[in-house]
């Protein structure tokens, strides 16, 4: 059983909180402290974004974070060292590497998967690689015991949903809206109905992401049947204005993350 599956099994029905951080924003040391802090505060799974120059699936907040990271000299390969350092600090949570395809292609899919597995990573989520284009990467991910997380969107048809789910492992990432990452006021109806559609076709845990930023979103997602929520842009917004005082920046993120996690416990 993969570390992700084991995590969901151990949660025994309690929904998981999955924070997203952008590796290297604004530098590797802060990313390490942030990841450690979130995991120590009780995050269940950690998603680490690898910066890319042209992130078309992301909104302005994550795009700016990626630009800060690249500008600081953070390299794609540095993410493996970041994960390794987390593991050496006894962080046990599963780590999902979220990336665009070009950096993987450039490094070589085989080397990328091997490095991710060796440093202690657990899964791969490639936002711009639909299953039609990913058969060879999928094989390499499996050879290296990495889960391949798949995204589904409100516009995904039923027939396509079955095809995507047939190759998914770990959990299914439900994109809440047609659009990019970033904070939104409320969960759209399309997100709720997509959670139902996915749950009806797969036994994999369903994680809801894109636009999650308030405890109320967590409650809505859970009542719709989601097993997890992913939150990214909001966390970046919280710390990016406070980077002059990093302790304060970390505290601010932790406080918010705890509120989100509190909302995921049954009342």
């Amino acid at each position: 059983m993969s570390r992700i599956s084991a995590t969901f099994t151990a949660l025994n029905g309690r929904p998981a909180y999955i924070p997203y951080i952008c590796a290297g924003d604004p530098d590797e040391e802060f990313s390490l402290s942030l990841a450690k802090r979130l995991c120590d505060s009780g995050a269940d799974i950690l998603e680490i974004g690898i910066p890319f120059s042209d992130p078309i699936a992301d909104g302005p907040v994550i795009q700016e974070a990626m630009q800060r990271s690249l500008k600081s000299g953070f390299h794609v390969g540095d993410v493996f060292r970041l994960i390794e350092r987390l593991r050496s600090q006894s962080v046990p949570q599963p780590v999902v590497a979220m990336t665009y395809y070009n950096p993987i292609l450039k490094m070589g899919p085989d080397k990328f998967c091997r490095s991710l597995s060796e440093c202690g990573g657990d899964a791969l989520l490639v936002v711009d690689l639909p299953p039609e284009e990913s058969s060879s990467l999928l094989g390499m991910a499996r050879d290296n015991e990495l889960d391949m997380i798949r995204l589904v969107a409100p516009s995904t048809t039923d027939a396509r949903l079955e095809y995507i789910l047939s190759e998914a492992s770990g959990f299914v990432y439900v994109v809440s809206v047609a659009g990019t990452t970033g904070e939104r006021e409320s969960l759209p109806e399309s997100a709720i109905s997509l959670i139902h559609r996915v749950s009806g076709k797969s036994r994999l845990p369903v994680a809801l992401g894109f636009g999650i930023s308030m405890p109320e979103h967590v409650r809505q997602a859970i009542s719709a049947g989601a097993s997890a929520v992913v939150e990214g842009s909001k966390l970046i917004t919280l710390y990016s204005g406070l980077l002059d005082d990093r302790m304060k920046a970390l505290e601010s993120v932790e406080r918010h993350a705890r509120e989100m996690m509190a909302a995921s416990f049954p009342h």
Binding site: A153, S155, V175
Partner: peptide, 23 residues
């Protein structure tokens, strides 16, 4: 299923899932 719209290995459809049905 294999990717469509290739010119002998170049091309394809490397986009986020939200764009697939529109394309």
């Amino acid at each position: 299923m294999i990717g469509s719209g290739y010119f002998d290995g170049f091309g394809g459809r490397y986009v986020p899932e939200v764009l697939i049905s529109a394309l």
